[in-house]
Design a protein around this nucleic acid. Structure first.
Lengths: 125, 125, 125, 125
DNA sequence: GTGGTCTAGACCACC
DNA sequence: GTGGTCTAGACCACA
């Protein structure tokens, strides 16, 4: 049996995911300037180096770019952002179906549960 | 420095979830005797004290009971198990919809994505 | 006129190039274990973090891989190494021809100079 | 901590090389008057003192001479310029062969690579 | 004031 | 002892 009791997910990876979500969801708009590294670090209560590392990684993925001495910006590539958003949605969905499967629900049963939930949600609203 | 990044989730909590999942999914059947603590601890490659703590917690929730001198058993209360299973499914589902909402998909859009996914899944199969 | 009086090339980039050369030239053989990060850092008289960064980059390029708790190894992919070697050779060559062009030699003239040089070299030997 | 990583090459040395190249390549013609130090300094976006130092060095090497009250001129000694040009070419070439050797190519292999490259270059053109 | 880099020193998980 | 991560604090180039 494989045993990996959650070795702490590195902070910089958690930050990467958080920011990726902000960009994908449009909370950080394409082309928009982002806060200075040091301010971001304070906002996330993290060391500037850690933030720097996270942003460097996001830059490698193309979600952020740097203008020397001016600052960092969200990419202006709407298609890229859209792809990231789709990819995240897909990950969430697959993870959800996988969890349901572990609980013993096959896809059809899972769909039924979802539909019931949505129906009740609409009525409740 | 105080920060809000996931300090390790205590191992005993992780184990509780694992076992709860085994019971809810039927991998551990109702009324079935479970292995001695020490063996379970080995199986999970965990300290026996940690396993003991997890089992105690599960017992408080009624999912496990102890017969002195005989050992520990999964509850025989099928309804309780069924409720736990439903509850977990509900948690997964709410968490999923919540994530999708953070990504900017409302419930209708999310449903559409799910249906597309399921359709493609069936075709692919 | 563009002015960029060599801002120091970052040490970690210099190290990357040095190590890449060692691997491409076969001084570090494919599959061979490399020294621990901290020892390498001492050998290069550099901070361990700097060495770590360089090695991480090389790992992203596939030239190095890590076995947890065991150490780091040169890739076993001979083809990859061969490609890197070819690429470096090509870079050197293009840089050379480019320099000669700046000096006012076209490709034919450059070839002539090379051949003279090689001829003399052989005679001298 | 002492280490052997390229501390910035002094700017005046970089400028010397740049100007030497201009003279050797004929961009600055023999006997031609060169701009006043202050204008050159501006062109190179460099402190006038730095430019002065570079020109003084070039004068010591005979590539430049000063006529009091008139200004500075490129040497009229075509043979000297030609020699400098040859010497630079030779340096580039030796540096190139040396790099290739470090990569593990002997002179014959290097020649083969050059010829392949030139052949493809001509076809491509 | 901006990002980028480097050092020093520490802690952690894994074996 | 191995790699990986994090913090703190410093320095640099560029504009």
């Amino acid at each position: 049996m494989a045993n990996d009791y959650s070795a702490n997910v590195p902070i910089y990876l958690q930050i990467i995911n958080e920011i990726k979500l902000k960009i994908a969801s449009g909370e950080w708009k394409t082309g928009q300037r982002i806060l200075p590294v040091r301010e971001l670090a304070m906002q996330f209560t993290v060391n500037p180096n850690t933030m720097q590392r996270a942003l460097a990684e996001l830059e490698r993925e193309g979600l952020i770019y740097t203008e020397r001495t001016t600052g960092k910006f969200v990419t202006s590539d709407d298609i890229l952002v859209s792809n990231v958003r789709d990819m995240l949605a897909r990950e969430y969905m697959q993870s959800f179906f996988s969890s349901m499967q572990k609980l013993g629900y096959n896809m059809g049963q899972t769909m039924k549960i979802i539909e019931d939930y949505v129906t009740k949600y609409k009525e409740g609203k």
